[in-house]
Each structure stands twice: as structure tokens, then as C-alpha cells.
Design a protein around this nucleic acid. Structure first.
Lengths: 133, 133
DNA sequence: CAGGATCCAGTACGATACTG
DNA sequence: CAGTATCGTACTGGATCCTG
């Protein structure tokens, strides 16, 4: 493709002004991310080890779990306690501010579960409506 | 695609048992998705048109906005009212159940914003701690 | 103006192998 | 056990063009 870049103006490369300039949007991404939500929820019950979290969350790869935990730790939501023993032993728990976040997220999660039937019904009538056109 | 499939075992294509078998996890993804959160928040203030939403949310492409709105409509969170005029006029608003979702999400968003300073501070000391090692 | 279709870059994510 | 490093892929999401 475009070997000659004579007129290859890269369409301004997307400003993304809002995402970049708005820190809260990034933080929101972290806590509402696919695995962020579930990790916070899992830690609501108390301290958990790495592999416990893997099993509790279910379906998450080592890589993504480690990455998610680091992001949340960096933001100050999760506390990481490493015990210098062999084999390694690391405990993860929520910080006070992390507990607040988890409450919000967990409350949302519980609400969603309570509404599953309604959503299923809505989807049903949505499909039905498409037929009638 | 795959012309010769003699020994081209695709690494089992990821089971994803949990995601597939758990409808609430999918719904959660929808409302906590990057643009889902912001669309719900934007509609909290009342009915909005497509291009109004684009401006209110900021940084969202037509494609993603349309896609997000459709997903939320399908799940019964958003009501879509199309007026058959030229030029086209479409109004989006929250359903009762969508308002509940928006309250949860919006409350989370406001909480995040109130905690931005704390997170910034946490990141700071996180970086500091890395230096000392 | 609202959105569908298409193309393409970036990255999110998973599998695997390796380290302390 | 708790990660890190590397690689490959699939999907996300943006730009662009097109239609009613």
C-alpha cells in the first residue's frame, strides 16, 4: 500500500481530546473494564490470592489478571501484600477507596442480575418487532 | 482463509465458558462498556438526538455510537423514537429500566470524579515505590 | 440527518514457555 | 506459586464513503 507518501496525509490521527485530557474517563475505564469489574467484585468478599482470584473470576488468563491487578493497584484500589517465602505467596485486598469502588460496581452487578429476565424479554420483543417490518 | 488445514489446529479457539453461559456478564459488559457508560450518563439529562449525543459524549465515532445505541435498545435500556420526516429525526431516551441502570452508572461516574485526586496521589506513590527497588 | 457498508490500524486478549 | 516475556489472533473502534 501507499509506498509514496506524497499525498498521504494521515487524517489527523484522531484527536481523542476527551480521553486524553480527561483522567476520570481513564479511571472509569479501569474499574468498569471487563476484568476490573469482576476482580473488584471478587475482592469484596475479602483477601484473595492470585490463583484464588483466577478461579473465582473464571475465564481470565494469567496475563490479564496480572495486568488488571497492577492497574488497580496503581490507581490505589487494590493492596498487594507479597510474603517473601518459597513458594511465593501474595495476597490481594481492597484499600478503603477500593472498597468504595467495589461497592458501586458490585451494586451495579447485583442490579444487573436482578434484571436479567427483563432484558431477555426486551430482546425478545425487539426481535419480534424486526420481523414485523 | 485457511487453505490447508492439515495440521492447522487453531488452539482450541478459547472456550470462554463463563462469558457464553452467563447472560448477566454480557449485559454488564454492555452498560459498563466504554461508550455505554457515557451514553447512559448523557441520556440521564433527558431525550437526545443522535448528533446531540455525538457532541455530548465527545470523541465517539458514528459507528460506535450507533452500535452502542442499538445494543442498549436491544437490551431494553434505551427507547428509540424515529420520526418519519425529511431530514430524518430520531430521538433517544431512557426506558424506566434504563433510568435505573443510568442511576447506577452515573453514581459510579460521579464517585470516580470525586476521587480523581486520590487516584493521582496513589499513582504518584506507586511510581515512587518502584524507584526505591 | 441518521445510519449502513467497508476498510484498516491498534490493541486487547489468550496460549505457551520460562523465571525466581 | 506468582508472575514475566513472547507470539499470534480476533476483535474493537475509527475513518470514509454511500444511501434514504
Amino acid at each position: 500500500m501507499g509506498v509514496s507518501n506524497e499525498s498521504k496525509v494521515p487524517p489527523m490521527a484522531a484527536p481523542d481530546v476527551n480521553v486524553a485530557s480527561c483522567p476520570s474517563r481513564l479511571i472509569l475505564e479501569h474499574v468498569t473494564s471487563r476484568w476490573g469489574v469482576l476482580v473488584l467484585a471478587a475482592l469484596t468478599d475479602g483477601t484473595r490470592r492470585f490463583s484464588e482470584l483466577r478461579r473465582t473470576v473464571g475465564g481470565v488468563s494469567e496475563k490479564m489478571l496480572a495486568q488488571t491487578l497492577q492497574t488497580l493497584e496503581r490507581d490505589g484500589f487494590v493492596h498487594r501484600q507479597a510474603h517473601p517465602v518459597i513458594p511465593p505467596h501474595v495476597d490481594y485486598s481492597l484499600t478503603p477507596i477500593g472498597e468504595e469502588a467495589a461497592r458501586q460496581v458490585w451494586s451495579l452487578a447485583r442490579w444487573v442480575e436482578s434484571r436479567v429476565p427483563d432484558v431477555m424479554a426486551a430482546r425478545d420483543s425487539y426481535e419480534k418487532a424486526k420481523q414485523g417490518r
